[in-house]
Computed example of a mutant assay.
Amino acid sequence: MTDPSPIPTVRRGRIFPDIQWSEEKKAQWKAEQEGFIQRCKVIFDRVQPELIKSHHNWYVAVEPESGDYFTDTDELGTINKSRQHHPNTPVFIFRINETGIAGTI
C-alpha cells in the first residue's frame, strides 16, 4: 500500500512580507483619497439638484479631472459608461438622492 501524497500547505498572509507602508505614507495616501473625494463631491453638489428631479435613486459616477459625470440605474452601468470615455481614470460613485450615499453599513 502506498502512502497518500501529502496535501500541500496553503500559504497564508502576505505574499510580499517585506513591503510595508510607513505611517507617513499611509497618511499621505489617506489625504490623497480625501482630496479626490472632495473634488468629486464639488461636482456632485453642483449637478445633484437637477438630476434628483429626473433620476432619483440612480447612480452617478464623477470623474473630477474633466468634470464629467455618468448616470445609470445601477452602479456597474455607471462604471461601464465612465470607462468608455475615461478608460484608466478613477471615478467616485454617488447615489442621486438627498444624501448622495450609495449604500449603508
Rank of each mutant, 00 (worst) to 15 (best):
D18I: 07
I19C: 07
I19P: 00
Q20N: 08
W21D: 10
E24G: 02
K26G: 00
A27Q: 11
A27K: 11
A27V: 02
A27F: 02
Q28F: 04
W29V: 04
K30D: 08
A31E: 15
Q33T: 08
Q33N: 11
F36E: 10
Q38K: 11
R39G: 07
R39A: 14
K41D: 03
V42T: 10
I43S: 00
R46I: 05
V47R: 14
P49A: 07
L51M: 09
I52D: 00
K53M: 09
S54H: 02
S54I: 10
H55E: 10
Y59F: 15
Y59M: 12
V60D: 04
A61E: 03
E63C: 04
P64S: 07
P64T: 07
P64I: 03
E65R: 12
D68Q: 06
Y69S: 02
T71C: 13
L76E: 15
L76T: 13
L76G: 12
L76C: 09
L76I: 13
I79F: 07
K81E: 11
K81A: 15
Q84L: 10
H86W: 02
H86Q: 03
N88V: 07
P90S: 04
I93V: 12
I93H: 01
I93S: 01
F94I: 00
R95G: 13
R95I: 01
I96E: 01
G100R: 06
